[in-house]
Amino acid sequence: MHADPSPVINTSRLAKNFGRTAALAGLDLSVLPGEVHGFLGPNGAGKSTTLRILLGLIRPTSGTARVFGIDPWAEPVRAHKDVAYVPGDVTLWPNLTGGEVIDLIAGLRGGADEGLRRQLIDEFDFDPRKKARTYSKGNRQKAALIAAFSRPAMLYLLDEPSSGLDPVMDAVFRRHIRRVAADGATVLLSSHILAEVEQLCDRVTIIRAGAAVESGTLAELRHLTRIRFRVTSAVKPEEMATWRGIHDLRVNGTAIEFDADAADLGYVLDALATAGITGITAAPPSLEELFMRHYGVQAGRQAGRQAGRQASHKSQAQ
């Protein structure tokens, strides 16, 4: 698409410590112009911290962050000129109405597009005349989303933006992501909802315990991973388990299930053909499985505990 595009977002060995807790530990993230980039990780992996650094709200302990080539800590106003942001945990001014909040936020960015504003309020089925204190979590999120989408931006930073939306509203949200992407905007979408990322994103960066563990297109990530087989065969499972490249073999009724390394696929298929099979299905792993592979281990649990600590810290603040 882009011959040699300079990234819209670029972080290099980004680190951030909160006291003794390392929220980010050398994160490299690169988001190219016009792409919808999924930023995937469990709670507490450092997604929100990264977004806050990109917004110049907090200063990195070390490493660099650039948005449109600008250091957001040094020049936040210039870096934010064309950025729309939806925080993960939206709180609004209790005594302003939703409509006022939308106008306030969009107004600070230069003013809403009237047509878009009306369309978004309509599609999100949002009542802008209610005071914000009466809104549920989903409605507060809608207000922030409408404010973000009601004025075109070059970059959208969205922190788990659909976590409070019902499936119908989620569809509206996805439609507008596709719309701004089609208009050439860049989107960084932080999420732990895999289906969302799978449906929307061109590229994905997976973050765990403050560092990127994987980055690439979904196709590239699958290339690195194992294929899930389900076969019915006369071969004994014990024998099959000894084959090269086979992992996690188990018997499920009459079928044998196993994962095979992508590099050993030829060997596995040959062996299966030689041994004789009566049924086979082979599927690429869902992102869900990719995810579990990265976080279903000890390190992932530890990151989860850190997240718990941060969350309790957040809720204590008044």
């Binding site: 806050r52 942001y85 600070l108």
Partner: peptide, 19 residues
């Protein structure tokens, strides 16, 4: 302080608004 601690300042400062 309330605006900051309760997260509303973040919404404002993410816009091109200087501190």
């Amino acid at each position: 302080r309330a605006e900051e601690a309760e997260g509303r300042a973040e919404l404002l400062l993410a816009a091109p608004v200087s501190r």
